[in-house]
Computed example of a mutant assay.
Amino acid sequence: MSQADDIKLEKFSSGVLNDAKEELTKATADVEDFRKKEMQGTEEKVLHEAYDLIQAKIADIHTKQSRQVSLAELEGRRKLLLLRDQMMQKTFDEVAEKIKAYTQTAEYSKWLCDTLQKSCKSMPAGSLIVQVKSGEITPNDQMTAAAGRDSVAIEESSKVTLGGFILVNKTKGIVVDETLDQKLHNEEDWFAASSGLSIGI
């Protein structure tokens, strides 16, 4: 082989080797690029799953906190309602005792007779029954005189415990409740709404 042939062969070999190196470099770069893309995709998937998990945990915490707050509010309102009822009961027990003391006075007897007189004046004709509590201090003759009717019966009734009276016209089927029991009962709803102890639910 001549020297010229050797030079040509060397150039050819060098060219082939350079081409091979370029192909190897390109292939290596392609592999690295593919690896990076795969890694990036995997990282994004992991991050996305982690984000979803965190959001689910946060939502679960919020749900539990909301449930705990709701239960605490319900328990708080239940205790307030119980306290309100206890305060109301105590208040009305004290009022009832004062009413009982009042019904032992001459002032009460005057009120009873005046109220009975007004009620009888507006009552249609017919025999009347005046129901009072057991142990009523107002004399029967005073109540009969206040009624201003010929036919009036004074009776004790278990329906009256504090004082006042229930006026019954059996002929007309009319009943008028002027008991202090009923008046006190009527104040309970007003007291609950106006005493500052009303609780919204």
Rank of each mutant, 00 (worst) to 15 (best):
R35W: 09
E22M: 09
D33T: 05
E32I: 08
Y51L: 04
A56G: 08
L83Q: 04
D30I: 03
Q65V: 13
Q68Y: 13
E75H: 15
T28P: 04
R77Q: 12
K37H: 00
D30C: 03
G76F: 06
N18C: 04
K37F: 01
L71T: 11
D52N: 14
E43M: 05
L17P: 12
E22I: 07
A29N: 03
Y51C: 02
A59H: 03
K64D: 10
L53P: 00
R67V: 10
R35F: 12
L47Y: 02
H62A: 05
F34K: 08
E75Y: 10
T42S: 09
L83P: 00
D60V: 03
V31C: 15
K64V: 11
K45D: 01
R77T: 05
L74D: 10
Y51H: 09
E75P: 02
R78Y: 08
K26C: 05
I54D: 06
A29H: 14
L83I: 02
D33I: 06
L24R: 12
E49F: 01
S70M: 14
A59W: 00
Q65D: 10
G15S: 15
I54E: 10
L24P: 01
Q55H: 15
L81A: 13
E75K: 15
G76D: 10
G76C: 08
L83Y: 02
K45L: 04
K21P: 04
R78P: 01
R67P: 15
L47H: 02
G41K: 00
E75S: 12
